[in-house]
């Protein structure tokens, strides 16, 4: 378990998450892609903290901030999904075209 392998696993998670966020039509599946990217980010931050910072506590603080971002992303995302469904009966991204162009 070297720093490079940990970071490569994190990069794989970010790549899969990016694929999911760009390809999924359903809002909820799209959000799972975003969560997976944040998951990779969290792993990368902790990997760097454990191997390059000598245990300086600020690195763990950054990880806690990322976890807060995950929670905010989930809560606001689901609230937006609910709001959009209520207004438009839409649950796939293709149904929202008014903001296009």
């Amino acid at each position: 378990m070297t720093l490079a392998t940990v970071l490569i696993v994190a990069a794989a998670l970010i790549g899969i998450g990016l694929y999911g966020a760009l390809s999924q039509q359903s809002f909820v599946m799209l959000m799972m892609g975003l969560e997976l990217m944040l998951n990779g980010g969290l792993l990368a931050v902790i990997g760097l903290w454990a191997n390059t910072m000598g245990g300086a506590p600020e690195g763990q603080l950054l990880a806690i901030i990322i976890m807060a971002v995950m929670a905010v992303d989930m809560a606001i995302g689901f609230a937006l999904v609910t709001a959009v469904y209520r207004k438009r009966q839409a649950d796939v991204t293709e149904s929202l075209t008014t903001m296009k162009h």
């Binding site: 990069a11 790549g15 990016l18 694929y19 999911g20 760009l22 390809s23 999924q24 039509q25 796939v92």
Partner: peptide, 21 residues
């Protein structure tokens, strides 16, 4: 299989992974 711009997304994901690696 509810996807759009599937090929583009695969390319973007692979590119992100390759670039980061």
């Amino acid at each position: 299989m509810m996807v759009h711009q599937h090929r583009f997304s695969i390319v973007a994901g692979v590119l992100a992974f390759a670039g980061l690696t």
